[in-house]
Amino acid sequence: MSLELAVLDWFFEPLQFAFMQRSLAVAVMVGIICSVVGSYLMVQRLALLGDAISHSVLPGLAIAFWLGVNIFVGAFIAGVISTVIIGWIHTRSPIKEDAAMGIVFSAFFALGITLITTIQKDNKIDLNHFLFGNILGVTPGDVRDTAIIAVLVLIAVFLLYKELLFYSFDPLGAQAGGLPTGLLNAGLMVLIALTVVASMKVVGVILVLSLLIAPGATAYLLVPRLHQVMLLGATIGVFSSVSGMYLSYYVNLPSGPAIVMVVSALFALSFLLSPQHGVLVGPRRGRPWQTLQALLPSKGSRP
């Protein structure tokens, strides 16, 4: 067999299994929406919020399972409630936002684990599948739900792109110019919650932060505009998801961690080798006189 054929064979072999087709389909969709929505988290310095929402979906998921409702719906509701409570604590008390996130997400997470452990005794439901993903157990229904979420999220980002760009860059200026920033922020939280919910099967709630942040951060070191960060990020997200799945198939690794390791490696490459910002090849930084120069107010550095 020629080399080309061997490569093709290597590529197509997993695809003959229906479960691999389904899980790859879900992985591709999740790779796209995580990167797109996660770009907003990164530029707003809200990476921790992605972590908070993802840990907070657990109790909703458990309750939905117990009630026999679609677990995506329960998880989504819990994720949204957690952001509301975080915002409430942050605005109504002197507690800072990051502390509020820390308190709320660990409380929700603990409640979720407690509920799932309780339910687990009588049902075939595995806590580990939610924590670390269970992409090989993706059902046709999961594919359908993920596709619906992905389409909704992408349409929303496309239609609201210019408003969300203004809001995430300069919230005060956007508000003063008449944009409903409260509504935009709520919309963004809903998009994040939807994305996290769709990602549970792929990487699980603990590692989803990586898929949200790392592709956008990798792209951010390479291209200068937000929509480019999203497009390149989505490409990186898809590449990572797919190659993670193949790694998982051939080397017999758990798929969630395999995906996260691929995307982390890509970030490391970008961090070291980006033409603009790369530590090894970019413009040299960190020399004492340059550090001093950066501190001079006339050079436009932030005070």
Binding site: L165, A174, G177, L179
Partner: peptide, 30 residues
């Protein structure tokens, strides 16, 4: 507020945000 243009203090803005000069000026047309 659609009759208002407000420019915040420069220190309020994240200048590492991935946007070009054009992107920022077009925000004025949103």
């Amino acid at each position: 507020l659609d009759r208002v243009a407000y420019v915040p203090q420069r220190s309020q803005i994240d200048w590492t945000f991935p946007a070009t000069v054009w992107d920022v000026v077009m925000m004025g047309r949103v």
